[in-house]
């Protein structure tokens, strides 16, 4: 059976909120190392990958591999009943037809209990190769969201160019064009404001802004976002879920390529 206790319901609430417009139904795959999710959007252009390692929970117990087939709209309805600071416990049997969710207030004076019906989901899993990216940018997540939403007002697509001069986001549309350039920046007082750029070779790729703006719904999960680019491969946008390494919410986006 599965029993997983999260100290803050906020993490799961925000994860589901960030991905529910991209994917509708998905399996939460539970095993002794933690809970993982991998799902593509209907158009097979974007992929969501969530990893919550066992050490993100206390306690965590999962004796066998269990796939929890969840409709995210339904899960959202149940999670709405949890306060951000509630302790959240997930329970399921080995071959479950429902997922039990318990929300406890921090001072334990309120306990809510819900059962969510599960579904059989035949999910296509993709093997994501380990990639040494040519450019890695670590920046404030709200700043990345602002750049994407600002540029989407002008165009459907953005070209991201990484060079020794910095990272340049460029778009052009019917009303005109725009660009934003980021340079490496270290704020000694507040390192959450840092912009870190690692570059091994120049990169230029074009992406649909609609998806990038969608990924930025995860900005509430983490102060910083990591964006990884290499020529001719999908973009990776990654948010840390907890202070523990390995627990993250990742989005992959296929580029637009020449005909």
């Amino acid at each position: 059976m599965l029993e997983a206790r999260l100290d803050q319901a906020e993490i799961l609430k925000k994860v589901v909120d960030a991905i529910k417009d991209l994917v509708q139904d998905c399996n939460f795959d539970c095993n002794d190392s933690g809970i993982a999710l991998q799902a593509m959007d209907n158009s097979h252009v974007a992929l969501v990958s969530m990893n919550l390692q066992a050490d993100s929970f206390a306690p965590y117990r999962c004796d066998r591999n269990i796939a929890l087939g969840v409709n995210l709209t339904s899960l959202t309805k149940v999670l709405r009943a949890a306060q951000n600071t509630d302790i959240l416990t997930l329970r399921a049997l080995d071959a479950p037809d429902s997922l039990n969710l318990v929300f406890e207030s921090q001072d334990k004076d309120r306990i809510s209990e819900y059962d969510l019906k599960l579904m059989d989901i035949d999910q296509e899993h993709l093997g994501i190769p380990e990639t040494e990216y040519a450019a890695t940018i670590k920046m404030p997540s709200v700043e990345f969201r602002r750049i994407c939403t600002d540029l989407m007002a002008l165009s459907e697509s953005v070209t991201i160019e990484a060079s020794k001069d910095g990272i340049k986001f460029t778009c052009s549309g019917d009303i005109g064009n725009g660009s934003v350039t980021l340079r490496q920046h270290t704020n000694v007082e507040n390192e959450k404001e840092n912009i870190e750029i690692e570059l091994s070779e120049p990169v230029a790729l074009t992406f649909s802004l609609k998806y990038l703006v969608n990924f930025c719904k995860a900005a509430g999960l983490s102060n910083t976002v990591t964006i990884c680019l290499s020529n001719e491969v999908p973009l990776l946008v990654s948010y840390a879920l907890t202070s523990k390494a390995g627990s993250n919410l990742r989005f992959y986006l296929a580029p637009k390529i020449g005909d």
Binding site: M40, H44, H125, L126, A254, K256, I257
Partner: peptide, 14 residues
Amino acid sequence: PTKQATLGKFFGQP
């Protein structure tokens, strides 16, 4: 002119 690629082009079946 650019065309939106799909992920299957880059990520294989595991």
